[in-house]
Nucleic acid binder design. Structure first.
Length: 241
DNA sequence: CCAGTATCCTGCAGGC
DNA sequence: TGCCTGCAGGATACTG
């Protein structure tokens, strides 16, 4: 993990603390404790947090195990080690660069009003803007691809070249996609799972992501593979403009 | 300011 | 069957 594994530090900070709240900011998880402090976690591409009975076998690449007085263990598993687990002292939250630079929450009430004009001020491809966590925090590759498909916007189109009414629509679609995906328990492509080990079922609703070469569900043109910011970017050449 | 690429790391699918 | 290559849900540090 990028910054996991100051294991001795984590051990000394987490021992004999009570987890009082679990929060999320963008793609980061915060486990607040008493005495005050927080465990900051990012799952990267392949990370999972699992709640498991202590006697059950641990998966390979289990990097961190918290033994809870309530019984089970909270395990952090991350084969690719792109994730993060870091101790935050009180106050670090406002100074830590990975947290303090995060943009607005996609589902926050103001986002509907604030995000479209912000996107309209930028000249980068709209998809790069959606993935820029400093603008809006929490949209990843799958949901960026799906939202753009739903909104009928080509991922390579620059933010400033998209009418604000279309950006309104895009932000609406982002919110819909996220709400639906959360409702379905997320999107399991290969190794994502919920804390109980359950898979997410949004994958069956994907209409563009992972469907290059298949017909567009809206207009039947074949979906094409684009590449933006080094990331796989399927789109429909006909109905995404 | 912006775009593109490399980098961290492991697992898996596909081609030969 | 086995080896090799490229690609994967992310973030950041570079270069030009």
């Amino acid at each position: 993990m990028r910054r996991l594994l100051d294991l001795p530090l984590l051990r000394s900070k987490l021992s004999n603390r009570r987890i009082t709240a679990v929060r999320r900011r963008g793609k980061y998880l915060l486990l607040d404790t008493e005495p005050a402090g927080s465990l900051l976690v990012h799952l990267g591409m392949s990370g999972r947090m699992l709640l498991a009975e202590a006697h059950t076998p641990r998966l390979p690449h289990t990097h961190l195990v918290l033994r809870l007085d309530s019984g089970p263990e909270l395990r952090l598993v991350d084969p690719r080690r792109f994730g993060l687990a870091q101790w935050l002292n009180p106050g670090d939250e406002t100074t830590d660069p990975s947290l303090s630079n995060l943009g607005m929450e996609p589902l926050a009430p103001d986002t509907k009003n604030d995000l479209p004009p912000l996107l309209h001020t930028r000249n980068s491809p709209i998809k790069s803007l959606l993935l820029d966590q400093r603008l809006v925090a929490g949209v990843g590759n799958i949901y960026a691809v799906e939202s753009l498909w739903r909104a009928g916007i080509r991922p390579s189109r620059r933010g400033a070249r998209i009418a604000v009414t279309r950006l309104d629509r895009l932000v609406h679609e982002i919110q819909e996609v996220l709400r639906e995906a959360i409702e379905q328990g997320g999107t399991t492509i290969r190794d994502f799972s919920a804390p109980g080990g359950n898979f997410g079922y949004f994958a069956v609703r994907l209409q563009a992501y992972g469907r290059v070469g298949l017909p567009c569900p809206r207009c039947t043109s074949d979906l094409r593979e684009g590449r933006i910011g080094g990331r796989s970017t399927p789109f429909c050449p006909t109905c995404q403009r």
